[in-house]
Amino acid sequence: MKRAFAWAAFTFGLVYFFLPLAGMVEFSLKMRRGTYSLDAYASVLNDPQFRATFGYSAMMALLTIIFGVVLVVPTVFWVRLKLPKLRPVMEFITLLPLVIPPIVIVFGYIRLYNTSSWLPLTGSATGSDILLMIGYSVLSLPYMYRAVDTGLAAIDVRTLTEAAQSLGAGWITVLAKVILPNVLVAVLSGAFLTFAIVIGEYVFAALLDRPAFGPYLVWSGGNKAYEPAALAVMTFALTWACMALIQLATRFSKHTRMQPK
């Protein structure tokens, strides 16, 4: 009886998740009348708008990741090494983006950094791009921080740092050659997750009026028939790839990561 219930629950989940995915795939193949074809995909790939917006979002994701790593890794390292009292504060700050709805954060940006403010970031395209990237880094902060913090928890930061310093290494060398390689897997996990979050993000990009992939998706949904399904399939594949890469990185780390005592 127990096993029957278990199979029933599992099968229900399978159907619930399989049907929309199947529907999405099936629909994306129906562009040509009467037969299945990849026309919708060809149409998407040939759309210069798609290439422009996708390229823009991919670039944004990359910049967000770099910005996030440069900001988070040294900070987490420093807090662990010199300011352990600050850890609860860090925990709280990095939890906030999960508590405050993104739409409220971007609302605050628009009010605080508009053309008439002391820092008129929304006044120019570059300024808006910077604000969007920073906004994305805030969205991914909870994941990035936790990944790096867990990664650093597994190694003895103090001993490694002191050992490197006793051999004459400076702070930059310590970070780049000692700390970063040891948290590389954590950083990679955070990076792929950031990519998955950023690539299709809508609210920030739409409200800051940037030509990103998310607004393009919504536009496509309102104006095309089969292309949205093809876009959804591609986004799903991308999300899946990001998660697969995280798993791969984690598995890889089990062989290379220094064993904690």
């Binding site: 929309p20 995915l21 199947a22 999405m24 994306s28 979050i197 299709g200 809508y202 998706l217 876009l231």
Partner: peptide, 16 residues
């Protein structure tokens, strides 16, 4: 859990 937002709604429109 990360497949939310716009593409998810497309999947549902394509299905239902």
């Amino acid at each position: 859990s990360n497949f939310a937002g716009v593409p998810l709604s497309f999947a549902y429109l394509a299905t239902l």
